[in-house]
Write a protein that binds this DNA or RNA. Structure first.
Length: 820
DNA sequence: ACATACCGGGG
DNA sequence: GTGTACGGTATGT
C-alpha cells in the first residue's frame, strides 16, 4: 500500500471503456509529478422516505441495458424533510451511473415512491461527501499499477481518499488562441482552415505556429501544412504539460475548430493525461470542453455572467474586457484583413495579432483565477464547473453542499411538467420607477446594501416557516395574506445568514490588509463570491428549475422589497430631490441646479439621514456620483425604458447599458452614429454637434453617397434554406443569391443590403456581393427610417430635440422626391 | 396580434 | 437525466 498526497486537478467518472464506471482523479504532487488515482469500486446512494418494510429493498436487483443494478446496503436513518422528522432509508447502489434509473423505477412503486437525492450528479455528491476542493491537497492510499496508456508519472489503484488540506497549488497555465481562414464568411467552425495557433504559458513559453513561411517573425515556428499544425497543437500541449488550459470562447470556437480539423485530417486527439481527447460535455452555458487531468477554462462565460456586474463594459469581447481589466487592447485587425493577408501569403501581422490574444488571455486568467477559485471553494465544486455556472447554479450548489449540516433530504429537480407549470407562474418583481427621458446632471445613485438577502434573513423567509404558527406572531407579508413564523429559523435564511456573516467578517479583516497585496485580492475575491451568491438567493427561489423553488417565498421577498424602496422614494421627494429612476433596490436622484463639487456633500448628508431612519439590518450605500446621466424612452411609449441608460462618471468614463450598437444585425452606419451621438451628448456636452452629425449622415445617405460597406447587415443562416417557414430578409437574400450561383451554406453569415424598389424588406434584401456586382442602389428610405433613426431617435428625443431638426424641415414626400 | 428567428463571444 | 440560457427586437404571416 502506498500513500500519495497531491493537488487535485480534476475528477470524473469514465464510462468509455467498460460498463463498470471508473472514477479518475488527476493531480500533481508538490514536486510537480503528475498522478492519477483510479477506482471502479465506487458506490452511490439515494434516499427513500417510507414506513414500509425495507426488506424488499435489501436484495433489490434491476436489469438494465447498462448492466445489473444491485442494492448493496440499506441503512435506516431519521432525516428532516421541510423541517419535519421522517424515517428514511439510504439505499446504496453498486453502479453510480444507474442511481437515477433505479430512482425512476422505485418512484413508480407504491411503497417506495418518495425517492430523494437520486438526481444529484454522482461527482457532485462525491466531492461534497469527501470534502474535496479543486487544486487543494488530497491524500490517496492504494497500490501503484502499470501506467499503460497514461501520460502520468504515477498511476494508483485507489482504496481510500481524504482531504489533506493545506495550501492550494499554483497551476502551470497555458493560454492559446487560433486564427482561421474564412473567405466564405461561415460563422461556425465547419470547413474553416486553421491557419495558426499561438501559445503563452505562465512559465514564459511564447510561440505562434503557422504553415505559411515568411521572413522575420518573432516567436514564430513554421510547420509543413495544416495537418502538421494540428499535430503540433497536441504535441505542445503534451510538452508544456499545463494544469490549466485557458482560452477565450474556447468552448464554442477554438477547441471545436481544432476537433473538427483533427477529424478531417485523421489526427488522433491526445489531450488528456490518460491519452483521451477533448470531450464535449454539457454545462449551463452550453457545450463545454472537458480534458481528463487538465482543467480547461473558458474566460468568456465567467466574465459575461459572473463578472458582468463588476465590469463597466456592456460588450464582453476579449478586447473590451482586456481594456478595462488590464488596461491593454488587442492588436486591431478585422477578420477581412486576416483573410486578405493570408490569401496574399503575408501572415506576419496575423501572427502578432494571434500572439497578443494568447497573451491577453493569459493575463486575464492570472488576474481572475483567484476569483474563480473562491467561487469554486465557496460552493465546493470543480472550478471547471463553477466558472461556467449561472447564478442559479451557484446558489443550488451552495445549498447542496451546506444542506447535509441540517440533516435535510435534498430536494429533487422539478419534473418536466412541474417545470412547465412553474414557468407559467409569473409574479410581481421589484418596483420600478420609470425614468422621465432626459439628460440629468450630477446624479447620485444609492442602493440598498444586500436588500433581498437582508429581507430573507430578517423575515425568516423559508418554505419551512411559511404559514407556521399564528399570523400575529409571524412576519406578515405586505400586500399578501400569508406570513412566516419567526421561529425556528429555516434552512435557507440560516444558510444565507451564515454566508452574509462570513462576508462581513472578511470585509472586517480586509480593512487591516494592504490594498495592493495579493492577500487583499484573495479576500476581495472571497467576499465577492459570497456577495454574488447571497444576492442570488432570491432569484433562485423564483427560478423554475430550482430544487428549493418556492413561489410564495420569492413573492414575499419582492413584496417586502417594494415596500422598502417606495419608502426611500418618498423620503427623497420630501427632502427636495428629484427621483429620476429607481429599480428594485436602487434610486437615481438629483437636485436641480446642483454643482458637481458640492453635490457629493449634499448627497452624503441625505444618505446619512436615510440610514438613520432605517432599521438595524437595512442600509443604503452610495453607489456612485455621475456627472451626467441620459435616460431614454421606450420605443413608442412615453415612459422610459428599463435598464437603458448612459452615464458619465466622475472620471469621465462612459457607462453605456442596453443600447443596441453592439449587434452585428445592425448596419455599421447605425452603430457608428449611435455611439458618436452618445459620446457627443455625454462626454463632449454638445447635443448641437450631435444633431449636426446626424443631419450630415442623413444627407449623405439620401444622396446615395454612403459607402455600401457601412450599410451591410449581417445575419447568420442557421438552417438549410428549405427549412425556413418564415422568410426573413437574410433568408430571402440567400435564396436569390443561390439562384444566381453564389455559394450558400447553412452556418454562413449572410451579409445583405436593402435596395431600392417595391415590396417587403425581404423582397428588397440582396447579398452584398450581388449588389456590388450588379451595381444595385441601396434604399435610402430603409436606412433612414429603419436603421439610423431608430438608433438615435430615442437619444435625441430624450434631449427634446424634435425630429424635424435633423430629419429635415421638409415633409417626408418632399424628401422622397429629393432622393430621386 | 402572434409566430419566428436572431443577437451575444470567437474568425 | 427530468431540463438543455435568456431577454430583447425586427420582420413575416
Amino acid at each position: 500500500m502506498e500513500r500519495a498526497v497531491f493537488y487535485l486537478n480534476n475528477i470524473h467518472l469514465d464510462t468509455s471503456e467498460s460498463k463498470i464506471p471508473t472514477l479518475k482523479l488527476f493531480g500533481k504532487t508538490e514536486d510537480g509529478k503528475k498522478v492519477c488515482a483510479i477506482t471502479s469500486k465506487v458506490k452511490d446512494y439515494l434516499w427513500v422516505v417510507t414506513n414500509a418494510n425495507i426488506k424488499e429493498l435489501e436484495n433489490y436487483e434491476l436489469e438494465t441495458h447498462e448492466g445489473l443494478c444491485t442494492v448493496e446496503k440499506v441503512v435506516i436513518k431519521e432525516k428532516m424533510l421541510d423541517g419535519q422528522k421522517v424515517m428514511a432509508a439510504q439505499v446504496w447502489v453498486n453502479n453510480p451511473k444507474l442511481t437515477g434509473y433505479l430512482g425512476s423505477v422505485l418512484r413508480k412503486t407504491e411503497k417506495f415512491s418518495q425517492v430523494y437525492e437520486d438526481d444529484i450528479p454522482f461527482i457532485q455528491k462525491y466531492i461534497i461527501d469527501h470534502d474535496l476542493k479543486s487544486f487543494s491537497k488530497v491524500a490517496v492510499t492504494g497500490n501503484k499499477i502499470p501506467r499503460t496508456g497514461f501520460k502520468v508519472d504515477e498511476l494508483i489503484q485507489m482504496r481510500e481518499i481524504e482531504n489533506a488540506n493545506g495550501e492550494t497549488a499554483k497551476p502551470v497555465v497555458l493560454a492559446f488562441d487560433i486564427e482561421t481562414y474564412n473567405p466564405r464568411k461561415e460563422v461556425f467552425v465547419r470547413g474553416n482552415e486553421i491557419i495558426m495557433i499561438s501559445f503563452k504559458s505562465s512559465k514564459g513559453f511564447s510561440k505562434v505556429i503557422t504553415w505559411k513561411k515568411f521572413e522575420g517573425g518573432e516567436n514564430v515556428e513554421f510547420v509543413e501544412d495544416e495537418k502538421a499544425l494540428i499535430q503540433k497543437f497536441f504535441k505542445t500541449l503534451k510538452e508544456i504539460g499545463p494544469d490549466v488550459l485557458v482560452g477565450f470562447n474556447s468552448d464554442a470556437f477554438d477547441i471545436p475548430s481544432i476537433m473538427d480539423r483533427a477529424k478531417k485530417f485523421g489526427v488522433k486527439q491526445v489531450a488528456g493525461l490518460d491519452g483521451t481527447g477533448f470531450k464535449v460535455v454539457r454545462s449551463s452555458s452550453g457545450p463545454a470542453i472537458w480534458i481528463n487531468g487538465i482543467t480547461h477554462i473558458d474566460l468568456y462565460p465567467f466574465f459575461s455572467r459572473t463578472m458582468a456586474d463588476r465590469l463597466k463594459t456592456d460588450i464582453m469581447s476579449l478586447n473590451r474586457i482586456s481594456k478595462e481589466v488590464l488596461n491593454q487592447s488587442k492588436k486591431s485587425l478585422d477578420y477581412e484583413k486576416i483573410n486578405e493577408l493570408w490569401a496574399s501569403d503575408n501572415p506576419k501581422d496575423i501572427c502578432e495579432y494571434c500572439l497578443t490574444d494568447a497573451e491577453l488571455t493569459l493575463k486575464l486568467f492570472e488576474k481572475i483565477f483567484p476569483v474563480m477559485m473562491e467561487f469554486s471553494k465557496t460552493v465546493q465544486q470543480q472550478v471547471f464547473k463553477t466558472c461556467r455556472a449561472t447564478y442559479g447554479n451557484l446558489v443550488e450548489d451552495y445549498l447542496l453542499k451546506e444542506n447535509p449540516n441540517f440533516n435535510e433530504l435534498r430536494k429533487r429537480k422539478p419534473s418536466k411538467e412541474e417545470f412547465i407549470k412553474r414557468r407559467k407562474t409569473s409574479f410581481k418583481g421589484g418596483y420600478v420607477h420609470e425614468p422621465k427621458p432626459g439628460l440629468y446632471q450630477n446624479l447620485a445613485v444609492f442602493d440598498f446594501k444586500s436588500l433581498y438577502p437582508s429581507i430573507i434573513i430578517s423575515h425568516n423567509i423559508s418554505p419551512s416557516s411559511l404559514m407556521k404558527g399564528k399570523k400575529e406572531d409571524g412576519h406578515a407579508v405586505p400586500e399578501e395574506d400569508y406570513w412566516f413564523a419567526k421561529k425556528p429559523v429555516g434552512m435557507i435564511p440560516k444558510i444565507l445568514e451564515e454566508l452574509v456573516n462570513r462576508r462581513i467578517g472578511i470585509k472586517r479583516i480586509m480593512k487591516d490588509v494592504d490594498v495592493k497585496s495579493s492577500q487583499h485580492a484573495i479576500l476581495d475575491a472571497r467576499q465577492y463570491s459570497l456577495k454574488i451568491i447571497a444576492n442570488s438567493f432570491y432569484g433562485y427561489l423564483g427560478f423554475p428549475k430550482s430544487r428549493w423553488y418556492s413561489i410564495k417565498c420569492a413573492k414575499a421577498v419582492t413584496s417586502f422589497g417594494r415596500d422598502y424602496i417606495k419608502k426611500i422614494i418618498e423620503q427623497s421627494k420630501k427632502a427636495g430631490f428629484e427621483v429620476v429612476y429607481a429599480d428594485t433596490d436602487s434610486v437615481f436622484i438629483y437636485k436641480k441646479k446642483s454643482v458637481f463639487r458640492s453635490a457629493r456633500k449634499t448627497y452624503e448628508k441625505f444618505l446619512k439621514q436615510i440610514n438613520e431612519s432605517l432599521h438595524g439590518f437595512m442600509k443604503m450605500d452610495f453607489e456612485g456620483l455621475y456627472k451626467k446621466g441620459l435616460f431614454i424612452s421606450k420605443k413608442s411609449d412615453l415612459v422610459g425604458a428599463k435598464k437603458k441608460y448612459a452615464l458619465l462618471d466622475e472620471h469621465g468614463n462612459l457607462v453605456i447599458k442596453g443600447f443596441e450598437y453592439v449587434r452585428r444585425d445592425w448596419s455599421p452606419l447605425a452603430k457608428k452614429i449611435q455611439l458618436k451621438v452618445l459620446k457627443k451628448v455625454l462626454a463632449e456636452n454638445a447635443s448641437k454637434n450631435a444633431v449636426k452629425l446626424v443631419k450630415n449622415e442623413l444627407k449623405k445617405l439620401r444622396l446615395g453617397k454612403t459607402p455600401l460597406k457601412e450599410l451591410i447587415i449581417s445575419v447568420q443562416l442557421k438552417k438549410k434554406l428549405e427549412n425556413y417557414s418564415s422568410i426573413g430578409p437574410h433568408v430571402a437574400a440567400a435564396m436569390k443569391a443561390e439562384k444566381k450561383g453564389y455559394f450558400i451554406n447553412p452556418g454562413m453569415l449572410v451579409q445583405f443590403i436593402i435596395i431600392k424598389g417595391e415590396g417587403s424588406v425581404s423582397e428588397k434584401a440582396f447579398i452584398y456581393e450581388q449588389v456590388k456586382k450588379e451595381d444595385l442602389k441601396y434604399d435610402p428610405e430603409y436606412y433612414v427610417y429603419k436603421q439610423v433613426l431608430p438608433s438615435v431617435k430615442r437619444i435625441l428625443d430624450a434631449l427634446n430635440v424634435k425630429e424635424e431638426k435633423y430629419l429635415s424641415s421638409q415633409s417626408k414626400e418632399d424628401l422622397t422626391s429629393f432622393i430621386k
